[in-house]
Amino acid sequence: MLPNTSPSTRGKQSVWSSGLDSISSLKNYDHTYVLMGDYNSTWDHSIFRSLLGSRFVDSSEQAGEGFHMTYPANSDLPSVIEIDHIVHDKGVVVGDMKTVEIAGSDHKALLATLEATAD
């Protein structure tokens, strides 16, 4: 489960930054991580790029298929922004990746096939 990654709207930037910083701090532990959810951030946010650092990758980037637009969904508007992400250690490889509409959600789900590589 992700920490609180509330939208970075007026008055909530510190909560949003704190949530992303706590994800970034996982790079200090000796575990293999796969972290997925609504990050409320894009590659345009330096804090998102910073949390990836030299250890983590974004599945969408690793898949090499371009962006996987997840928001908004289930509306007359097309999905035009990728704020949901699957972030994982570089030792995990992404295969197929796609978005799927979920009834009642304003976000599309990200589905991916992930495989841990041998150390």
Rank of each mutant, 00 (worst) to 15 (best):
L110G: 01
D96M: 07
S46V: 13
M36G: 15
D58A: 14
V92S: 06
P3R: 00
V92L: 10
Y71D: 01
S18F: 06
V80R: 15
D84L: 06
K98S: 15
S17D: 14
S59P: 00
S105E: 07
D38R: 00
G11W: 06
T5L: 13
D119H: 09
I81P: 00
A112I: 03
V94G: 03
G11L: 10
S105M: 11
N28K: 13
A73E: 06
K27L: 02
D84H: 03
S24V: 01
Y39D: 05
S54Q: 13
W16L: 00
V80N: 13
H88S: 15
A103C: 02
A118Q: 02
L2Q: 04
L111M: 14
S79L: 03
V80Y: 13
K98F: 13
D119N: 09
V93L: 06
P72C: 05
M1C: 04
T99A: 02
H107D: 06
M36N: 00
A116K: 14
D106W: 07
S79D: 07
T117Q: 14
H45Y: 03
V100Q: 15
L35Q: 07
K12E: 12
T9D: 13
T42R: 10
D84E: 07
L35H: 05
G95V: 09
G37R: 05
N4G: 01
W43A: 10
I86V: 11
E82D: 01
D96L: 08
A73C: 11
S50W: 15
S59M: 13
K12N: 15
M69A: 09
H68P: 00
D30V: 01
G64R: 08
Q62K: 14
M36Q: 00
S24A: 15
G66I: 09
P72M: 05
R49V: 11
D106E: 04
E65V: 15
G91W: 01
S14I: 11
G104M: 03
N74R: 12
